[in-house]
Simulated assay, not measured.
Amino acid sequence: MTTTTITGGPVRTDPVRINPSTWNLALGFDQAQVRTAPTTLLTLAGQGPVDGDGRLVHAGDLTAQVALAVRNVEELLEAAGFTVADVLSLTVHTTDVDGVLANYHLITERLAPATPPATLVGVARLALPGMAVEITVQAGR
Rank of each mutant, 00 (worst) to 15 (best):
D86P: 03
T91G: 06
L41C: 10
L62T: 14
V34T: 14
V137G: 11
L42R: 04
D14T: 14
R110K: 07
V137A: 12
I107R: 01
P38T: 10
T136Q: 01
P20Y: 06
V84W: 10
L42F: 07
T115W: 00
L90S: 10
A124S: 01
M131K: 11
Q65F: 05
T39N: 12
S21Y: 15
T136L: 06
V16L: 15
L76R: 11
P49H: 03
A26F: 13
S21I: 12
P49S: 15
I107H: 08
G130W: 09
L101D: 02
V73P: 11
A127F: 05
A45V: 15
P49K: 04
N19K: 04
T4A: 10
V84Q: 12
L101I: 14
L25Q: 14
D53Y: 14
V137M: 14
E74Q: 13
D14L: 09
L25G: 06
E75H: 09
A32W: 01
V121I: 11
V100D: 04
S21Q: 07
V34N: 05
G28H: 01
I18A: 11
V123S: 01
N24Q: 15
T43W: 00
L77W: 00
A37K: 15
T36G: 08
D61K: 05
L44T: 00
R55Y: 00
A114P: 07
P117D: 04
L111N: 00
V87N: 06
L128H: 07
L68M: 09
L42A: 05
A69D: 13
R125I: 08
F82V: 08
P129L: 08
Q31F: 09
A85M: 07
E75R: 15
G60M: 09
T5F: 07
F29Q: 05
Q138V: 13
Q65N: 02
M1V: 12
E109F: 01
A45G: 08
L41Y: 12
Q138P: 09
N72P: 13
T136R: 04
T83Y: 01
A37D: 08
V84M: 14
A112V: 04
A139H: 00
T63Q: 07
A37G: 14
Q47H: 02
I6D: 13
G52I: 02
M1Q: 12
T63M: 06
A69M: 05
E75V: 14
A124P: 05
T91V: 08
G81N: 06
L120F: 06
T2D: 15
A32I: 01
L120P: 12
H58C: 13
V97H: 14
V123L: 03
E134M: 11
T22H: 12
G99T: 11
R12W: 08
V70N: 12
L62C: 01
G122K: 09
G140H: 05
V137R: 04
D61M: 03
A114W: 00
L42D: 03
A79T: 14
L106N: 11
P15W: 04
V137L: 04
G99P: 07
S21M: 06
N19V: 07
E74G: 07
P15D: 08
T43E: 04
H105P: 02
A26S: 15
R71E: 10
I6L: 05
